[in-house]
């Protein structure tokens, strides 16, 4: 069970500096925080959107979810952490690997 705020955890997942698809991160967080269901899924995804619009994540690539792995016919996004995201991540006392 996750014990830090969800946005902290999301930033932490991105601190490996690798690119991640939103659906991968969302389902990982859902599992860790025991937050199942569409409502929680959307609210975690919204946290990612907020982090991106705050300049901490960068939206690199999109594809249409034609198979319905996340939400059918919606966009899937691939993000990477930005320098600002790393700074805010380490401000938040996250392990910077």
């Amino acid at each position: 069970m996750g014990n830090r705020p969800i946005k902290f955890r999301i930033l932490e997942l991105f601190l490996d500096e690798k690119e991640h698809w939103n659906y991968e991160v969302v389902s990982k967080v859902q599992g860790e925080y025991n937050m199942q269901g569409n409502y929680n899924r959307d609210s975690i995804n919204f946290d990612i959107i907020e982090l991106a619009s705050g300049g901490m994540l960068k939206d690199l690539e999109q594809k249409v979810d034609s198979e319905g792995i996340y939400k059918k016919d919606f966009l899937l996004h691939k993000y990477v952490i930005t320098d600002f995201g790393k700074v805010r991540g380490s401000d938040a006392c996250l392990r910077y690997v």
Partner: peptide, 18 residues
């Protein structure tokens, strides 16, 4: 109503960074 008490407590504990 939004089911956010858990997040409330988690955030409150992060005094220094947040």
């Amino acid at each position: 109503t939004l089911g956010k008490f858990g997040e409330l407590v988690r955030t409150m504990k992060e005094f220094h960074p947040c």
